[in-house]
Design a protein around this nucleic acid. Structure first.
Length: 857
RNA sequence: GGGCGGCUAGCUCAGUGGGAGAGCGCUUGCCUCACACGCAAGAGGUCAUUGGUUCAAACCCAAUGCCGCCCACCA
């Protein structure tokens, strides 16, 4: 009898434990310098600057997904022989981080004003250290193969200098100017913000209709949702084509409560259809009104203080909260009989996208950057095909925004950020310089004051692809790795970030910063809401990694990243990939338990294809490798992961390993060669998606092993494609599946039974079927169930009947009728391609044959 | 207001002109010497609606409905 040899050696536990191997591999990769890019390498270069996460807190699912995508590309490109720079970093995110820190202060009943700038800056520095460390730790847990020797932070001294250099360069070109304009003012942050930082929310308000008397008799009724702003009205406007009002244009209305005289002007910007068609003009508090005021020379009255309180000196309303004033104004108007009516009104109101307070448009003196020239260069670059978008449709989002681009308000009135490098001496001379001047170049005064504003955080992020490489210095890195290759981000920052990188890249480097932009999907909570910590809908990637492993999280992320616009988070799919890891683990366990020497090199199977299953699985591997590679190249990562999964589980494990188990136990060298070859290639193909488990398993395969991470990407060139073997094995699978169906239907035990297959079925097929379906091959068999897919019969030791037969027969006859109908259509035969017709005919014949076999007995 | 995307199995999603798919869940039978994180067999979809193009439509076109996103100076 068989000596009871343990099939599986004990060194591999039964279940794969990601926790046991991940940290170890990451440390080894890093220690061996596998992440470090060499600018002097002979290899072709490939570079990506990772979008710097905001240093506002820990990374969320969106970051995890983005990291998985980037890292898969980085690893893939390395394996393809490129010198890869994958540069990490994080962003100070001026307004966002200031908000987070202020919130923390508020919990201790403190404000930044109370503790002062120095103490605030200390807190900020401490924040940078701790949160920065958390972010880096998370990226490591995910397995990101980033070059930590080149880690960057937008507030590093060197990066700071790049930002200053850019400002000075723009200033010297005459593109930066300071001017009062109407801006989006956040009364909470006490800062201006750009249009892109305004978040619109629906409000249910009241539309008030107010009568303004006209000098010399009569009146005009205007409509407004913000009656309190009327205190700063300086005019009334109507549409020039509005017949109702032609008589009053040129007259003067009198502002109720205040008594100011308001010229009545005609301006095409006024919508005839809205409200009464007459608009109160408040140039100091509304962008449209501001433009109308400019066109007609109306005065600008600033009606609001920077904290959002009303600014109406000499009235009881001065310094009061705007909402309170609204009430009082409405009451007063009622008393005077000037409030005509009130209507409920639903409209969009701007909020600060960081602190969510209502934005007040108001006049403020700000730093502006002219964009025309940069915009035109960016548009030209797109026309020349220099930037490819994936999916393509996002190019329009980008171009539409660019075309309507206006000057950029780059100044912010914050405490946190890059200070505007503009200095003024006591004599009023202005110096703009990268390094703080010691004295005024004109009058040599040393009493210099720096402008208090800081820069929009996106001003610094816009420089990321080259500032991280050392710009403005002519560094080796800059020379070697600019332009970078790919940028991959969420669509919400296409305009905020991607467009601006393209513009500054063209401006300062003369080349677009990357030639491909991939827009990945947004991860929503399981219920479809936005994932956010404040809503309680967030999921911490670290928890998922702890439960399922980084590989599972990454495999899920890459399987959804480019396939749709949004995806609801579904933990069961992550869990599915953990099971997949476990499957790979156990497949390897099985193979490694095969006795005998490590396979010869080169593998012996290259000559011998004695076993059809060997030829078949190699053919399948060829197809899988082609599909996986194409998926990555086409930014369709889901195709890659699906192909790898299907090959590994449904072909290699389900069929091939089952087919060769006996050969493995016997130490068959060819089977070992083939299966090792398959695993070796599979692990390499899967490595970019699931780096840890593939590294672990690859290292366990026999033979000298380096790292799978720096192995070559498989390129089988369809080398093993074998249609004949595919067809034969198809037949095997079809028969086995039918037999299993009968077995189950008959209620027979899982093993045992007899199989008769007609001589027209090849001997290889018969043996394989018998083995895989656990049957004994016989030459004669009575009282057995006929097979449909092949001429033959099967019987089982216990269990009775062939309940399945009648049902199958019905299904097939229905199918046959449908196919015959289609074939009977002359138009189809005439117009459809010949191979489609032939295909259908073949199908019909197969169905006919199957039906015949079932009916025979 | 303009633009874009989605609507496919109970759930989450693949599938861009020729026989409806995956993961999870569900039913049934199996601890079969890799794996119960497993194996096997199943059930379950007029592919949102309507019309059109085509020999042939989940897929192309048009319209409608619902969900979501982006952009936008109607107070």
């Amino acid at each position: 009898m068989d000596e009871a040899r343990p099939l599986i050696e004990t060194e591999m536990p039964k279940a794969f434990d990601p926790q046991a191997i991940e940290a170890g591999w990451y440390a080894r990769w890093e220690a061996d310098g596998l992440f470090v890019a060499d600018p002097t390498s002979d290899k072709p270069r490939f570079a990506m600057a990772f979008p710097p996460p905001n240093i506002t807190g820990e990374l969320h699912m969106g970051h995890a997904l983005q990291t998985a995508v980037y890292d898969l590309i980085a690893r893939y490109k390395r394996m393809n022989g490129l010198e890869v720079l994958f540069l990490p970093g994080y962003d100070h995110a001026a307004i966002a981080t200031q908000n987070v820190i202020e919130k923390r202060l508020a919990q201790e009943d403190q404000t930044k004003e109370e503790i002062g700038r120095d103490a605030f800056n200390e807190i900020v520095d401490e924040w940078y250290r701790t949160v920065g460390a958390t972010i880096i730790n998370q990226l490591r847990l995910l397995g990101a193969s980033m070059d930590w020797t080149r880690q960057r932070f937008t507030m590093d001294a060197r990066y700071y200098r790049s930002v200053m250099t850019a400002f000075v360069a723009f200033y010297e070109k005459g593109w930066i100017y300071r001017a009062p304009r109407i801006v989006n003012w956040c009364p909470h942050d006490r800062s201006a913000i750009s249009d892109l930082e305004v978040e619109w929310q629906e409000h249910h308000d009241t539309l008030y209709f107010i009568k303004y008397p006209i000098q010399g008799g009569g009146d005009v009724t205007i409509a407004t949702v913000r009656p309190e702003t009327m205190l700063a009205d300086t005019g009334v406007a109507v549409n020039p084509d509005d017949g109702r009002y032609t008589g009053i244009v040129g007259k003067t209305a009198v502002l109720p409560i205040v008594g100011r005289e308001l010229p009545i002007v005609a301006d095409a910007g006024v919508e005839k259809g809205f409200g009464t068609g007459a608009l109160k003009v408040t140039p100091g508090h509304d962008p449209l009104d501001y433009e109308i005021g400019q066109r007609h020379g109306l005065a600008v009255v600033n009606g609001m203080n920077l904290d959002g309180s009303m600014h109406v000196p000499g009235t009881p309303y001065d310094g009061m909260d705007a909402l309170a004033v609204r009430k009082l104004v409405v009451e007063e108007l009622k008393r005077q009989g000037l409030l005509v009516k009130e209507e409920p009104y639903v409209h969009q109101v701007g909020h600060c996208d960081r602190c969510h307070h209502v934005i007040e448009p108001l006049i403020s003196e700000q730093w502006w950057l002219r964009m025309e020239e940069m915009r035109d260069k960016a548009l030209a670059a797109s026309r020349a095909g220099k930037v490819r978008w994936h999916p393509e449709r996002y190019e329009r989002t980008y171009l539409d925004w660019l075309r309507g681009l206006r000057d950029w308000n780059i100044g912010r009135q914050l405490w946190l950020g890059h200070r505007v490098p503009v200095y003024q001496c006591e004599n009023g001379h202005v110096t703009v310089a990268v390094d703080p001047p010691r004295e005024c170049p004109e009058c040599h005064s040393t009493a210099l004051k720096q402008d208090p504003d800081v820069l929009d955080t996106w001003f610094s992020s816009a420089l990321w692809p080259f500032a991280t490489l050392g710009w403005p210095d002519k560094t080796e890195d800059l020379d070697a790795f600019y332009p970078t290759d790919i940028n991959c981000t969420a669509r919400e920052i296409i305009n905020l970030w991607v467009s601006r990188m393209i513009m500054t890249g063209l401006e300062f480097m003369g080349e677009v910063p990357f030639h491909d932009v991939a827009i990945h999907c947004v991860v929503q909570a399981a219920d479809g809401r936005r994932m956010s910590k404040s809503l309680g809908t967030g999921v911490d990637p670290r928890e998922l990694i702890a439960r399922y492993g980084a590989d599972a999280l990454r495999a899920w992320a890459t399987s959804v990243a480019m396939s749709s616009q949004d995806v609801r988070f579904d933990e069961s799919r992550v869990e599915g990939y953990r099971r997949f890891s476990n499957k790979l683990w156990n497949a390897t366990r099985l193979v490694l338990s095969s006795p005998g020497l490590p396979p010869s090199s080169p593998p012996g199977f290259l000559e011998a294809h004695e076993h059809v299953e060997d030829a078949w699985i190699l053919s399948r591997l060829s197809y899988a490798s082609t599909a996986i590679t194409a998926g990555i190249d086409n930014f369709a990562f889901q195709d890659s992961i699906n192909a790898a999964y299907a090959f590994a589980w449904n072909e290699l494990c389900d069929w091939y390993l089952e087919a060769i188990k006996d050969r493995l136990r016997a130490g068959d060298a060819v089977a070992q060669d083939v299966v090792f070859f398959c695993l070796d290639n599979l692990f390499r193909l899967l490595h970019p998606f699931m780096p840890f488990v593939t590294e672990e398993l690859w290292s366990r395969l026999p033979g000298p092993r380096d790292y799978v991470m720096r192995s070559e990407w498989p390129d089988l060139h369809g080398r093993f494609v074998d249609p004949a073997a595919e067809e034969t094995f198809q037949q095997v699978m079809a028969i086995v599946e039918e037999v299993r169906g009968h077995r189950q239907a008959a209620g027979a035990p899982p093993r045992g039974g007899r199989l008769l297959l007609d001589g027209t079925v090849g001997g290889t097929v018969r043996e394989l079927v018998a083995r895989l379906a656990h049957l004994e091959l016989v030459d004669e068999l009575e009282q057995a169930t006929p097979l449909a897919v092949a001429p033959g019969r099967v019987s089982f030791p216990a269990g009775a009947g062939d309940a399945r037969r009648q049902k199958e027969l019905e299904r097939m006859e229905k199918d046959l009728a449908r196919q015959e109908d289609r074939l009977a259509n002359p138009a189809f035969r005439e117009k459809a391609p010949a191979e489609v017709v032939a295909d259908l005919e073949q199908r019909r014949d197969a169905l006919k044959a199957a039906i015949e076999r079932l009916k025979l007995q």
